[in-house]
């Protein structure tokens, strides 16, 4: 039988990685961070629960944060004037979206909504600014990763544009 006192004393030693940290490790924006830095992010990141079909953010709304799916599915879509939904992407656990809000103050380019009950991590622009202020090396790592992700997406967009132009020509 386990001794309750010893279990209690060594509880922290046996502590396993939290679900938040496990999710963060799947996101390229937090690539290359140390265990301690992941714990630092965990203390400031916000965990939010969304109901099925609940809107996370609407198109044209001011963007303040990026979202990381910890559990559940999310769809990104644009609605036309007749309320016809054009789904751009369906995202699942470990995916992230809205990351450009960390860099600029532009409005959202599409609407995001939970498909089912979802738990989503929210990392805001102010959280990033605070990290850059207090832990510059951690803040710089995140900024560099953000630049890499944005660059990769830009390259992909350019390739798609080139293919489209070739097809139309």
């Amino acid at each position: 039988m386990k001794n309750a006192i010893w279990t209690n004393i060594f509880r922290n030693w046996q502590q396993t990685e939290s679900k938040t940290v496990m999710t963060l490790k799947q996101v390229p924006i937090f690539k290359g961070l140390s265990e301690r830095e992941f714990l630092e992010i965990e203390t400031i990141i916000h965990e939010r629960a969304f109901h099925p079909k609940e809107i996370i953010f609407k198109r044209q709304a001011p963007g303040e944060a990026m979202y990381i799916i910890m559990a559940g599915d999310v769809e990104i879509y644009i609605e036309d004037h007749n309320d016809n939904k054009n789904v751009l992407a369906t995202l699942e656990q470990g995916d992230f979206f809205g990351e450009l809000a960390l860099l600029d103050n532009e409005t959202r380019s599409a609407t995001a909504a939970a498909i089912e009950s979802s738990t989503i991590l929210v990392f805001s622009q102010t959280d990033l600014e605070s990290l850059i202020e207090r832990k510059p090396s951690l803040g710089n790592k995140i900024l560099l990763n953000l630049a890499r992700v944005t660059g990769a997406r830009l390259r992909k967009t350019n390739e798609l544009l080139a293919v489209t132009q070739k097809e139309s020509a």
Binding site: T43, F50, I55, P62, A65, S124
Partner: peptide
């Protein structure tokens, strides 16, 4: 920073980003 996180936990999803700002 932990206190601020606890404080915004009570904000409804709809007003979360506006509340942070």
């Amino acid at each position: 920073h932990h206190f601020k996180k606890s404080l915004v936990r009570f904000l409804p999803n709809k007003f979360f980003e506006v509340g942070l700002r």
